[in-house]
């Protein structure tokens, strides 16, 4: 009995559905273009491509679990990268010894994380202290962060880094792309945070009912602040990877990533109204997206078609989830019974 409910819960979970979609896309692409899609070259290049927006998706997901959203992730990523890049170009040139460059790189990285944390703190304060709806708070702050990056750079790219900057985005560790390792570590970290810690359970409960969380003596303000600070710092990491891969920092890099990050979160089964979300869902959603877009690349389909297919996939998944809940099977029976 108990066993049955667990397995039926598994089958009905959005993650299970997503795993099937990811698998289906993978198989489809492998069949359509077996030589190229399954080539190690393609698989590696995929592993380099997705971590930057996948990490942003993790940030968005965490805020979405509280019933909020972070529309400023790209702004934070770019601002962090611009700050780090400014430090690097100011104090470390391309022709510096590795040791010294390393020192400055770590300082720049720390500065980027600090920027992310501060930006997150600002978002959290706007939501928790001033009572702004998260959409508006992060819409406005996102403009401010991007704007600060523009004001700092005059809108042009900052470049001319020491070589070690390239490692984070382009390097390999025991044959595995470094950005992939970073993403996996962050995803595992977020999974542990959400499922094993008091913080994670509080986030889930707050997302389910913010008012009840307050009445249950949860420190709501501190919780929200921490959520947005973590989201901000995740965004900084993504910013550093973007900077490394582009070998430069600019205020308007990755402008399509916001859509992508929100899309992946929803695709990953996170409830946009809060209270439900799993890191594994994000991983599966990212994989489906990447398989799809890279497969489409193989098939010589234009970049614009990718946008079309991403959007279509998002709506498709939304439709599947909604139809399943509202009008089929148990949903209807339950709603009748409550009468």
């Amino acid at each position: 009995m108990k066993q049955a409910t667990i397995s039926s819960r598994l089958i009905h979970s959005p993650e299970f559905r997503l795993a099937i979609i990811a698998l289906a896309v993978f198989v489809l692409m492998s069949v359509l273009s077996p030589d190229r899609f399954l080539s190690s070259q393609n698989l590696t290049s995929m592993a380099f491509q997705f971590p930057e927006f996948a990490i942003l998706a993790l940030a968005v997901m965490l805020t979405m679990m509280t019933g909020g959203i972070d529309l400023s992730v790209v702004g934070v990523a770019n601002l962090s990268a611009v700050v780090a890049a400014t430090i690097l170009t100011q104090y470390a040139g391309p022709d510096m010894s590795v040791g010294v460059a390393m020192k400055w790189y770590l300082i720049a990285f720390a500065a980027a994380l600090l920027v992310g944390a501060l930006a997150g703190l600002a978002n959290g304060a706007l939501v928790a202290y001033f009572g702004l709806p998260p959409i508006l708070a992060t819409l406005g702050s996102g403009l401010v962060f991007t704007g600060l990056a523009i004001a700092m750079t005059g809108g042009s790219a900052v470049m001319g880094f020491p070589d070690i900057v390239a490692w984070l985005g382009n390097g390999k560790l025991i044959g595995v792309p470094v950005p992939l390792i970073v993403f996996v570590l962050l995803a595992i970290g977020l999974h542990i945070l959400l499922t094993k810690t008091g913080f994670g359970l509080r986030v889930t409960m707050y997302g389910a009912n913010p008012l009840a969380a307050m009445f249950a003596a949860i420190n709501v303000t501190a919780l929200i602040l921490r959520v947005y600070v973590i989201a901000g710092m995740f965004s900084s990491v993504a910013g550093m990877i973007i900077m490394s891969r582009a070998n430069s920092a600019k205020a308007d890099y990755g402008s399509s990533y916001l859509l992508l990050a929100v899309l992946i979160s929803v695709l990953g089964g996170v409830n946009p109204y809060g209270g439900y979300g799993r890191a594994i869902g994000i991983v599966l959603a990212v994989l489906s997206m990447q398989f799809l877009s890279s497969g489409l690349n193989m098939l010589q389909i234009s970049n614009f078609a990718r946008e079309l297919i991403w959007g279509g996939l998002l709506i498709f998944v939304l439709l599947i989830n909604t139809i399943d809940w509202a009008s089929l099977g148990q949903g209807r029976k339950n709603s009748n019974k409550s009468g």
Partner: peptide, 15 residues
């Protein structure tokens, strides 16, 4: 105000 309706019974106590 009192309950997290969509969450499990046990969690509602444990919180």
């Amino acid at each position: 105000e009192g309950l997290f309706l969509t969450q499990s019974i046990i969690r509602n106590v444990a919180v």
